[in-house]
Nucleic acid binder design. Structure first.
Lengths: 139, 139
DNA sequence: TTCTAGTTTAGAATTATTATAAACTACATA
DNA sequence: TATGTAGTTTATAATAATTCTAAACTAGAA
């Protein structure tokens, strides 16, 4: 899964967002971004995976802080769901999701897979920031 | 806001879903469905509004049970958000939302206001149940 | 009227998240 | 290279939303 050891790149990226490249943040960067496919997760799953088989443990509080910081910095995107947990996505490009009501899993839909021929005008004084589609699927 | 006293209609509706028409459920029905515009709410807001200026108080547990029962029965729809609370909508027709990132408020978008010219094929063995668009807006 | 399964309820338990404050550390600058 | 400091990490406490529990209540069938 891990593609390369882009530590310097991540350090630069972090500094450019006014985030100090700490050991913890770099570990989390490697885990999240050194992969080909996009990754959907909750803080709970990230915490388990980050701290599995690793000498250096990262505290749960830091996982929360880091995910929040990365989301504000635009490295992660929060996903809309109907569940009472926050879901995040390493794919920050505007894109869509299938939501499987059986397995409760999200799958990406490429932006180009959906085309809209009619979009409403936003309320006065507001601008459209982005548009996301969730397609609920079941057996 | 209240249009009429459709108690018998609600009692029938409830029985048809194998839900006994209790005082509590009928009160909640009246509050939710005796209105012209659709209504977005959380359990917290519903609890406050139901128990404001009313002789008969409905317990929080019952509000939770009822909202859950009404959602399963298809009287309410859960809304997708990025917050850690469940939001519900009395508009159960497939429809879309504006989500204002400033005020964190949802507004309905009529189904006919959005048209899709391209929709992806669902994964094998799955069917599309519904499709919802969220348009994030900001100043 | 009586019985029973379904319902309501207060409060406890659980789960996700945020807050707190002490210890630690990256890094600017002396 | 050493030092001061603001930013960061951490364990733990606090809070918030929801679910669970079990006793009391009730709608409606018989």
């Amino acid at each position: 899964m891990i593609i390369s050891n882009n530590l310097k790149m991540y350090a630069q990226k972090l500094r450019s967002s006014n985030l100090r490249p700490t050991k913890q943040r770099l570990k989390i960067c490697q885990f999240l971004f050194d992969r080909k496919k996009t990754f959907h997760f909750t803080v709970e799953t990230l915490n388990k995976k980050i701290n599995k088989n690793r000498a250096m443990k990262v505290s749960l509080a830091t996982i929360y802080n880091t995910v929040e910081a990365f989301t504000s910095a635009g490295y992660l995107k929060e996903i809309l769901t109907s569940k009472n947990k926050s879901y995040y996505d390493t794919n920050i490009k505007s894109h869509h999701h299938f939501y499987d009501e059986g397995s409760k899993e999200l799958t990406d839909i490429n932006y180009s897979q959906i085309k809209l021929s009619k979009v409403p005008v936003p309320p006065k004084g507001k601008k459209i920031k982005n548009l996301e589609v969730v397609i609920r699927i079941q057996k």
